[in-house]
Amino acid sequence: MTVEPKRLLILACSHRKRPDSGLLPAMERYDGPQFQVLRKFLREQPIEAQSIDTFILSANFGLISANQPIPKYDYRMSLQRVQELRPKVSCELEQVLQGNDYSELFISLGKNYWQTLEGYERLVPAEAKVTIAQGSQGGRQAALRRWLYNGLVEQSYGHSVIATQGKAQIRGIEITFTSEQAVELARQALAEGHGDPAGYQSAYVLVDGQRVAPKWLVSQLTGLPVGSFHTGDARRVLQQLGIEVKST
């Protein structure tokens, strides 16, 4: 019987959390877009999921297993909290890596969270392949999906589709969102106040009745600055993803 190489996934906690009272496993408590992608993968690929260990970097708890029960809380990763957590997180990561021969690591963290992992390179085996997801939430979410499925088949509405179906490309960045996933990410970005969604002139996209600029939406999906591409590029990308772009 072939033993699958073990892979390690490290995600930052999300602001969006399920409001259930009592304790929930961390993977269920956090409800941001990346955790929705992860739970979908676990449902669809339970055998492959057994080779992945998932840990979550929490501003409140440090580096915890995705299965650790936690309550609902509201705690931000301030710069002061970074300083407090850094030695604790370093020790916790060292403990995770000890005795586990991980062939791959995937790390997706926001700016302040990254500072708590400062010096992680010295702990990771030299032969392990490390993937760092950077940029906007959309870009990190797409990178996570690619890493998880790694050529497997993703299920969508009861039908099997290749995970990269409906892809678009801009400035060398490949986007693999479905239209539903892109809109969900737009909702999250709007809720968190990212960028200037109202900066449109001749075209817009409707997100729950709110008009947003096509360039803003593509920027959220890719991490590219809005000034690095044209509105025509944004329209093409969104149309390839099945998102309707309306004219003013």
Results as ranks from 00 to 15, higher is better:
Leu93Lys: 02
Glu48Gln: 15
Trp216Gly: 00
Leu224Gly: 00
Lys72Cys: 13
Tyr73Gln: 10
Ile47Phe: 12
Ser78Asn: 02
Met1Pro: 12
Gln34Met: 14
Met77Tyr: 05
Glu244Phe: 08
Arg39Thr: 09
Val245Tyr: 05
Arg18Met: 15
Ile173Leu: 14
Leu79Asn: 13
Gly172Gln: 07
Leu63Pro: 04
Gln220Thr: 04
Leu93Thr: 02
Asp101Gly: 10
Tyr113Phe: 10
Ser65Lys: 01
Gly32Glu: 06
Asn67Gln: 13
Tyr113Val: 02
Asn100Pro: 05
Asp101Leu: 12
Ala189Ile: 00
Ala186Asp: 03
Ala203Asp: 08
Val3Arg: 15
Pro225Phe: 07
Lys88Arg: 11
Leu11Gly: 05
Leu24His: 08
Thr164Val: 10
Val153Lys: 10
Glu48Phe: 10
Gln188Lys: 09
Gly99Lys: 07
Ala26Pro: 09
Asp20Ser: 14
Lys129Glu: 14
His159Pro: 02
Ala234Val: 04
Gln137Asn: 15
Glu4Thr: 15
Arg16Glu: 14
Tyr113Met: 05
Ser103Leu: 11
Val245Gln: 02
Ile10Ser: 06
Gln239Asp: 07
Ala126Thr: 14
Trp216Thr: 01
Arg146Lys: 14
Ala26Ser: 13
Gly232Phe: 05
Val161Ile: 14
Val212Pro: 01
Glu104Phe: 08
Lys167Ser: 15
Ala203Trp: 03
Arg140Ile: 06
Ile107Glu: 00
Asp196Arg: 12
Leu38His: 07
Tyr30Lys: 02
Lys88Gln: 12
Gly172Asn: 06
Gly223Met: 05
Pro125Ala: 04
Ala198Pro: 00
Asp31Cys: 11
Gly119Asp: 08
Val37Gly: 05
Ile162Glu: 14
Ser14Ala: 12
Leu190Met: 11
Thr178Gly: 08
Ser21His: 11
Leu57Arg: 01
Pro197Arg: 03
Asn150Glu: 11
Arg7Val: 06
Asn100Phe: 08
Arg7Ser: 11
Gln201Lys: 13
Gly166Ala: 01
His15Tyr: 12
Leu8Asn: 06
Arg18Ala: 15
Val207Tyr: 00
